[in-house]
Design a protein around this nucleic acid. Structure first.
Lengths: 118, 118
DNA sequence: TCAATTATTCAAGGATTGTTGAAATATGGA
DNA sequence: TCCATATTTCAACAATCCTTGAATAATTGA
């Protein structure tokens, strides 16, 4: 992920509705949530949620797929991971002490450490 | 770090000048850089850089301290680390496979692994 | 104290972003 | 085909953010 992509991604995450949508989609997992369900859960108008979903998609943070009449949105975990990496790379450059607490969190997610996350 | 703080932090990082300033300050280390030097390096007017520095400070991502006539700005590594954590926590919740690549980067920054970063 | 240096604040205007409701598009079932 | 459902698109307006240059504040040395 280059700086330009990160810029767009940060912009996408800097709006309350969008940040909540992303969190909701991440928790929902790969099966995703339909646009209508998102609008309902967040108590936002369909056209407004559509606007924000488009913005998140433009940033590459979510993907969509049609399922009959509904359009299902899912988090793009790879993009989110890349964004975390982008943020960390500068930290790590000469400043290991900063990344230590992050490494701790990351470590509990390693394949060999399932179940250690609280 | 709660959602509100993260929101402000993402907003702060979603502007080109500010993202570049943060990267510059992170690389500069704890000794920091003066407002004037930042403005000069980035080819931005003093008042404009001052505006953006204030925004970054409001987000808690940088700190300032006066040094004679200059005001020295430094990256707040703790806040940056918290932001990375915030981003990761949602990823990790049930989706270890996403954090694996991040864990890789983080691991090379652990105290026991100095020098392993490329 | 006076002038020079360094940086911030302020107001004005331009640019971008967010919200709203109505109209348009796509799908599936009667 | 016609209607209901699900969502997007559009235009208009409101709100927020960014830039600019002039004025202000803080510090230091002559």
């Amino acid at each position: 992920m280059d700086e330009r992509q990160a810029l767009v991604a940060f912009g996408a995450l800097s709006q309350e509705t969008r940040l909540q949508v992303i969190r909701m989609l991440v928790v929902a997992g790969p099966s995703g949530i339909s646009a209508g369900a998102i609008a309902e859960k967040m108590d936002v108008s369909p056209s407004n949620v559509s606007f924000h979903l488009k913005e998140l998609e433009r940033a590459g943070l979510i993907t969509q797929q049609r399922e009959s009449r509904s359009i299902i949105y899912s988090a793009n975990y790879e993009a989110l991971g890349s964004l975390v990496r982008f943020l960390m790379e500068d930290c790590c450059a000469g400043h290991p002490e900063i990344c230590a607490p992050v490494a701790e969190v990351a470590a509990c997610c390693a394949p060999t450490a399932e179940g250690k996350c609280q």
